[in-house]
């Protein structure tokens, strides 16, 4: 009852004010985009806590998830949820594999953050190339383009898959908070992100835990890759874009905290969409990076400014 009267009220408002309708639609659009950025930022942050380097290959896990879904759905005709599960697990395992094969041996050698970043660029190139060789480099929608289902919320609209994105964002946020703060596993994760040396002395198996971090973080990126693929489509190079926006959201929110990444995603999305409205659609990426530089210069700790998780 409250919802209907609320939306009725909004519609009343908007008959009077076309600008209000536009503002609400932009707000909703921001919430949708914030979900993509938020999940990418939270999953990125999770792995960053344990490893302290910018993993450029993280975005590629989104492409792995999306394409595995595509393969299972198109070629093996698995049921929808099984395809989603398969895509998520494939992304998670790929993430774990990159850690076991490349990052873990490099960590043992004491490689710097810059080295790990350069190697992760190599992994990104390899994953993109392999996907393109299997599936071609063209863009492919995961859902039929012609089927359009969207809901009216007050004067604004949102599609079914976008509703799923928003819910995923909220669930991942709640789930990560629970995992990190309410479970033993989470306490261990936080212990190693605070100090790996101490954690090792205390007998925590850091590499096993970091492996789990990679798996969960990549799996979440894979899930977002599938959702983005269902909303628009997948292409082998989609990961880099997903990652950059995720990293920016994580930094402006406060790099090592889950709430920071969540808030950062929303802040970035809202700024971008306001910018699109005010300056035009061509400036979206420039706005994102100007925001990033502004934060790095004037508030490097991010919006929530927490140095601990």
């Amino acid at each position: 009852m409250t919802f209907y009267s609320f939306s009725g009220m909004l519609q009343c408002l908007c008959k009077r004010d076309k600008g209000m309708e536009l503002f609400l639609q932009i707000l909703i659009n921001s919430v949708i985009v914030a979900s993509i950025y938020g999940v990418m930022a939270m999953s990125f942050t999770l792995a960053y806590r344990g490893t302290r380097f910018f993993n450029m290959a993280h975005g590629a896990m989104g492409a792995v998830g999306g394409y595995m879904f595509f393969f299972l759905h198109q070629n093996l005709s698995w049921p929808f949820l099984a395809c989603v599960f398969g895509g998520v697990v494939a992304a998670g395992l790929t993430g774990l594999l990159t850690d076991r094969l490349v990052f873990m041996p490099q960590r043992k050698r004491g490689a710097s953050g810059a080295v790990l970043l350069v190697v992760s660029l190599g992994i990104l190139a390899v994953i993109e190339a392999v996907i393109a060789m299997i599936f071609s480099s063209s863009f492919q929608p995961l859902a039929p383009m012609g089927e359009i289902t969207s809901y009216q919320i007050g004067p604004a609209r949102i599609s079914e898959i976008q509703t799923w994105m928003v819910m995923t964002n909220l669930l991942v946020f709640a789930g990560m908070l629970f995992l990190l703060y309410e479970t033993k596993f989470g306490r261990l994760l936080r212990a190693i992100s605070d100090d790996q040396e101490v954690a090792r002395i205390l007998g925590i198996r850091t590499n096993l835990l970091i492996g789990w971090m990679f798996f969960i973080s990549a799996a979440l990126a894979g899930l977002m890759g599938i959702l983005v693929g269902l909303d628009t489509g997948v292409e082998p190079t989609m990961g880099f874009y997903l990652l950059l926006k995720g990293v920016i959201a994580a930094i402006i929110g406060g790099i090592s905290g889950v709430p920071g990444a969540f808030v950062g995603g929303f802040f970035l999305a809202f700024s971008e969409n306001l910018g699109v409205w005010a300056l035009g659609g061509a400036w979206r990426d420039a706005i994102a990076f100007i925001l990033l530089l502004g934060f790095l210069l004037f508030r490097p700790q991010g919006i929530l400014g927490s140095r601990e998780g």
């Binding site: 041996p105 660029l121 992994i123 190139a125 060789m133 071609s136």
Partner: peptide, 24 residues
Amino acid sequence: DDIAAQMQKLTYGLLLIVLIFIRP
């Protein structure tokens, strides 16, 4: 050609990874 373009990318990606291990 589509494969050749991707092979180039694959090669330089692999080179980056392998070099960091054997000859950083």
